[in-house]
Design a protein around this nucleic acid. Sequence first.
DNA 1: CTGCAGATGTATCAGCTCGATACATCAGTC
DNA 2: GACTGATGTATCGAGCTGATACATCTGCAG
Lengths: 198, 198
Amino acid sequence: MTGSRSGVLELAVLGSLHENPLHGYELRKRLNTLLGMFRAFSYGSLYPCLKGLLTDGLIVEEEPPDDVVLGRRSKIVYKLTAEGKERLQELLTQAGPSSWEDESFGIHFAFFRHTEAEVRLRILEGRRSRLEERMENVRTALARTRERLDSYTLELQRHGLESVEREVRWLNELINTERAQAADKSQSERGERPDSGE
Amino acid sequence: MTGSRSGVLELAVLGSLHENPLHGYELRKRLNTLLGMFRAFSYGSLYPCLKGLLTDGLIVEEEPPDDVVLGRRSKIVYKLTAEGKERLQELLTQAGPSSWEDESFGIHFAFFRHTEAEVRLRILEGRRSRLEERMENVRTALARTRERLDSYTLELQRHGLESVEREVRWLNELINTERAQAADKSQSERGERPDSGE
DNA sequence: CTGCAGATGTATCAGCTCGATACATCAGTC
DNA sequence: GACTGATGTATCGAGCTGATACATCTGCAG
C-alpha cells in the first residue's frame, strides 16, 4: 500500500507508457496534447506520481542501450512492468464516478481504444447522467431563487446550460454509435457478415 | 499583510455580501447557484477565506437584532465593512490574467453588473485571446505529432476544439454588444438622445 | 410528548495539486 | 567559445477538495 496516487494521474501515466516508454518531460507534453483543452498536468503532480509507481513496481527505469558511454544520465526513461500492465487493465475495466467526473472523464475517453465496449458504454452513460443531474440541480436552485437576477448572471447561466446540453447531445451520439456497433458485432457473431468488419 | 486569500474566492465572497449580508452556509449555496455549471466552492476554502477577511477587517459579524434572547448563537451573519466595499471596488476594477482564466472568469462575469464598461470589455477580450492562444497551442502540437491518433482521441480533440470555438463566438457576441452600448452612450452624451436612455 | 430523521449550520484535516522556481544539459549559431 | 532557448529533473509553499465531525433546528409519526 506504498503508493496512494490520485487515480486519474495513475491511469494517464500507465496508459501513456503502455503505448511506448517515455521520460517525464515528454510524458507531460504527450498528456497535455492528448487532453488538449480539457486538462493540464504539472510536474508537481507528475513526478511524485512516477516516484510512487516506481516504488510500487508498476514501472521501471529502462536500461540504456548498452553501447552508450557511461557517466551519461540525463534522460530517465520509464516503461511498464508486467504488474503495471495488469494494473492498467484493472483501471480500464472499472466504470464508476471516478471515470465520469469532470477531471477524469477526458482521460478515460482518451484511452477508450483499450477499453471494452461494455465499459465504454457504462462510462458514457454515467457521464451523461452526471451532467443531467447537475443541470437538474441548477434548474431547481434557479427556480427556488426569489429575487430575479441581472442580465449578466442570466446570460452566464444560459451559456452554461447550453454548453452542458450540447455535451449531452454529443454523448447521445456517441452512445448510439456504440450501441450500433455492439449490435453489428453480435449480428456478425451470429454469422451474418455485415460487409466489412472495420 | 495578514490575509493571503486566493483572489477568486475573495471577489466571490465580497461580491455576494455586497448584495446582502449572509452566513456561511447560505453564502456557499448562493455562490454555487450563481456559478451553476462552472464552479463549486467547498467549506474547506470558504471558511478560511471568511476568517482571513475578518482579520483584515473587510467583513464583520453582524449584530443580532437586539430583541433576540441571549445565549443563542447558531448563525454567524457576515456583512461588508467600508474597507470591504473599497476592496471590492478595487477587485472589480482590475482586468488581468486573474480575471480571465478558467477558474476566475465566471466570477468576474457574474459581477459584471458592478463593473465599469471599459473593464468589462478588457476582460472579455482577454478571455477571448486566452482561448485563441490555447487553440493555437493545441493545433500546433497536433500538427507536430508524428503518429496518427486513434478515432476516440481524435473525437475528443474535435469536441474540445468545437466547444472552445463556440465559447469564442459567444464572447464575440458579448463584445459586440458591449461596443454597441458604449457607442450609444457616447452618442447620447454628446446630446443626441437616442430614444430612451436605459 | 418523545424521539428521530433530515436539513441547516460551523469547522477542521489529510492529502493532493498548482505555479513558481532552481538548476543542469544539449543544440544551434554568430 | 559563449550566448540563447529548448530540453530535462526535481522540489516547495500555498491553496483547494472531499471527508468528516458535531451541534442545532424543524417536522412529524407513533
